[in-house]
């Protein structure tokens, strides 16, 4: 300890730090997708939204000097992509999964296309809140440097959980997701509900992207997402469309992402490729254990094409 090292404690600390640092994009995308899927639509395009959000946040932060404007821009970009998805899906006989894949390509491509000049400049980043002030150990303080977006995400999960159950909007979304006929019978436009749900989902996913480029890893480049958006969409199904479970799943994924590098730093060097794949192996294992062929997934919106 005298030399400033904390030895094996690095691993749990890195997992904790990783859970906080890496989980936020997963959290925002999965919560956003949770809203969309609860309304009966799946938007696989959130990978593109995430990347597009990251790029636009970085660009706006760089141009205006305000990272918060960047976050807002990312959200708006995401909402627009969500509107595009919902718009195309509202045409008859259009498959929402396919539209998602199309928008994944389109969003990613557009972000790369427009983002070329943004790789080199440094944009103002989002500030961090120091939650480790009580500790003298710099590693602990570093792990507990938290961005307010993370806190918003953590707060959003129980709020959504509550909103789905008790608010009028939550009920409307769930009705649209469970039975479009019922929603229609109540005099509501299913398409409009889904449009709004997809736009909100895109808004959140865009903000998740802004976290990537403006906080951690904290710059714009083309390898930034490496599939986090699509993984987060998978997390929603894994989390059974429950916002609270989305929160736990995102934290677990974030922590698992830190596992590979942390293990190497304490001398566990063999098989680092397999450790790096730990989040995926774990998810698959948990799904195999917890799913059942006898019943459909609890919590699955009945209108969702992927579970029908």
């Amino acid at each position: 300890m005298a030399d400033g090292s904390i030895g094996l404690w690095t691993v749990p600390l890195a997992v904790l730090g990783g859970a906080i640092r890496v989980s936020t994009p997963f959290l925002f995308v999965s919560l956003g997708e949770c809203i969309t899927e609860r309304s009966g639509r799946i938007n696989l395009g959130l990978e593109g939204t995430l990347v597009m959000g990251a790029m636009s946040a970085y660009g706006i932060s760089y141009l205006t000097g305000s990272p918060w404007l960047g976050v807002l821009a990312a959200g708006i970009t995401g909402a627009l992509l969500g509107a595009l998805h919902a718009g195309i899906c509202s045409l008859p006989r259009v498959n929402d999964i396919a539209v998602g894949i199309a928008l994944m390509l389109f969003g990613t491509g557009l972000a790369f296309y427009l983002g070329k000049p943004l790789i080199e400049p440094t944009a103002p980043r989002l500030p961090a809140i120091d939650f480790g002030w009580w500790s003298d150990i710099p590693q602990v303080r570093a792990a507990l440097r938290v961005n307010v977006l993370f806190l918003i995400g953590v707060a959003l999960a129980p709020i959504l959980y509550w909103a789905f159950r008790t608010t009028r909007w939550g009920l409307l979304i769930r009705t649209a997701g469970e039975s479009s006929d019922a929603a229609r019978a109540m005099g509501h436009s299913v398409l409009l509900i889904r449009l709004r749900a997809t736009m909100v989902g895109g808004f959140l996913a865009g903000i998740g992207g802004s976290f990537l480029s403006l906080f951690y890893p904290g710059s714009w480049n083309e390898g930034l997402s490496s599939g986090q958006g699509i993984t987060a969409v998978a997390l929603v199904i894994f989390a059974r469309w429950d916002p609270l479970l989305c929160l736990w799943a995102s934290l677990a994924f974030g922590g698992a992402a830190a596992l590979g590098p942390a293990l190497q730093s304490v001398g566990v060097t063999s098989g680092y490729h397999l450790f790096n794949a730990a989040p995926y192996i774990l998810t698959l294992a948990i799904m195999i254990i917890t799913c059942s062929p006898k019943r459909t997934l609890t919590g699955a919106p009945a209108e969702l094409s992927i579970t029908r």
Binding site: I97, G227, A234, H273, L274, L284, C291, S292, P293, T296
Partner: peptide
Amino acid sequence: ALRQYRGVNETISSLLLVHIALAVLNH
């Protein structure tokens, strides 16, 4: 098989298996 015998969503499992296959290959 996972879908049929364990009810695991095939879209997700096949996506996860891409990442796992790549790790196996690199390993």
